[in-house]
């Protein structure tokens, strides 16, 4: 008999995703980023399936190892298997409302529908223009706000 019931352990694992973050966007939890695809706990063995945001994202291995090391510390865990799956593609619609708020507070404009203006995360003005479709991370673009005169990053819509 496992020391901690599987259902309780699954709840504890799921809650960790509120706290664990993407190293390149520490303001947003993995749960709010929408990358946690599935969690299974059987006799204390934890299986976690994550969705990659971008296949070329250099943070993928880092996130996987960080999740594994973190979950291993939970009481009752008898082993952790974390893997990326491609059953369905992660899209920017997977980012939660709370995640969008967190991104904005961090200075990254959340993804918008194609053709929509990108509001400045600092002053909310839509007088913005794209400086480059590519930014410092695969998931982001570079914009400039003509109202508050700040450059800012915007998440690509996938």
């Amino acid at each position: 008999m496992p020391v901690v019931a599987d259902a309780d352990l699954k709840k504890a694992v799921t809650e960790r995703f509120w706290v664990l973050t993407d190293p390149e966007m520490p303001a947003i939890s993995l749960a709010d980023l929408g990358v946690v695809h599935a969690v299974d706990v059987t006799d204390g063995a934890v299986r976690i399936e994550l969705l990659p945001t971008f296949l070329g994202c250099p943070a993928l291995d880092f996130i996987r190892d960080k999740v594994r090391r973190d979950i291993e510390l939970l009481p009752g865990v008898e082993g952790v298997d974390v893997r990326y799956v491609y059953d369905r593609p992660w899209t920017t619609d997977d980012v939660t409302a709370e995640g969008r708020r967190a991104l904005r507070n961090y200075g990254i404009a959340p993804p918008v529908a194609p053709g929509e203006p990108v509001p400045c995360p600092y002053c909310a003005s839509t007088e913005t223009e794209r400086s480059s479709r590519f930014g410092p991370a695969p998931c982001r673009m570079v914009y400039y706000c003509n109202s508050c005169r700040q450059p800012f990053e915007a998440m690509k819509t996938l």
Binding site: G34, V36, H37, V39, D40, I48, E49, D94
Partner: peptide, 8 residues
């Protein structure tokens, strides 16, 4: 996110 997390 809770509803989005499926059973593995």
């Amino acid at each position: 996110h809770r509803s989005a997390i499926e059973d593995a």
